[in-house]
């Protein structure tokens, strides 16, 4: 999280309260450690549970693993990977997430470039509309879009789910990228234009390479958003096209008896975003800061 940076600036006296004086440095570390542990425990619990047999899970808490390491087994995972429905839904998640991310980034970048650098009538007014669209709750669109999809015969298809994600991803994409693109020095665009570069050339050769940090932020955001989505897929997908979240959700009502699917499945579902998060943390935080008003 390099952008946040408030790591012990020398001489900086943090704005603490009187408690600050009573607690010595060591005590602060203890508090931090405690909070950190509290924050980690839920995920740790899921992870360990996913490595235990269902019978062990119903008998004793996951923490007994620390005294009985023999309980650890990968059987639930091998069962999970042998489960055709789950594997299909994992594949569906990929089929939904990748196009939805690529399309949002591409179309959003095109529009953002227009908003930043092409002067057209009503541009500012339109941009205000885009900003307004950022907070529109998806609930307001579910029913009409469902009807639209039925008419187009794409209800229940992956295409439908993807398009819905693209639609609701675009306002934020345009907002984030437009602000970043507008900060690219104009001279760089003109230097290209002077040599006969078309808009498309400028977009490809100047905007995209220089806008890469913002594009990366957006891509990560959109990826996480779509990968983690439940509601959109719940409405617009069917049994064949449902992503992992929906497949797991249908097992939630019998939580106790389905724990052997749910725990490894949920961990599988969160492991990909987690890897993305830790690999691209910097961009993730940047995107968050730039677009912190998205709902």
């Amino acid at each position: 999280m390099s952008v946040t940076r408030p790591v012990a600036v020398p001489g900086r006296v943090p704005a603490g309260t009187r408690v600050a004086k009573r607690l010595t440095g060591g005590a602060w570390y203890l508090v931090v450690l405690l909070v950190g542990v509290i924050w980690l425990i839920p995920t740790l619990g899921l992870f360990i549970s996913s490595l235990r047999k269902a019978s062990d899970i119903s008998d004793s808490g996951w923490w007994t693993v620390f005294t009985h390491p023999a309980q650890i087994t990968f059987k639930d995972y091998s069962n999970l990977f042998a489960n055709k429905g789950i594997i299909q839904s994992l594949w569906n998640t990929v089929l939904i997430t990748v196009p939805a991310t690529v399309l949002v980034v591409f179309l959003g970048a095109l529009a953002a470039y227009a908003f930043a650098w092409i002067d057209f009538r009503g541009r500012d007014w339109l941009f205000v509309v885009v900003v307004g669209l950022m907070v529109v709750p998806i609930q307001v669109a579910l029913l009409p879009v469902a009807a639209l999809y039925r008419n187009l015969h794409i209800f229940g298809t992956i295409l439908g789910v993807v398009m819905f994600h693209v639609g609701f991803g675009l306002p934020f994409a345009i907002y984030l990228l437009r602000n970043f693109f507008a900060a690219i020095p104009r001279e760089l665009l003109e230097a290209t234009r002077m040599e006969g570069g078309s808009e498309w050339t400028i977009f490809r050769k100047v905007i995209v390479p220089l806008g890469l940090p913002a594009i990366a932020s957006l891509a990560i955001f959109q990826f996480l958003w779509v990968w983690n989505d439940l509601l959109v897929a719940l409405v617009f997908s069917n049994a064949k096209t449902q992503p992992l979240t929906v497949a797991l959700q249908s097992n939630m009502r019998q939580f106790g008896s389905n724990i052997d699917i749910l725990a490894p499945g949920a961990f599988l579902s969160l492991s990909v975003p987690l890897v993305v998060f830790f690999a691209f943390q910097r961009y993730f935080v940047q995107g968050l800061m730039a677009g912190s008003v998205k709902g």
Partner: peptide, 30 residues
Amino acid sequence: DKRGVSMIFQGFALFPHQSIRENIALPLTM
């Protein structure tokens, strides 16, 4: 680009993601 005029901008407008060679070659590659 058809006027035979080149321009040196304030701040030079060199592309940070390209090498000096690619920057100089830009008018030719374009």
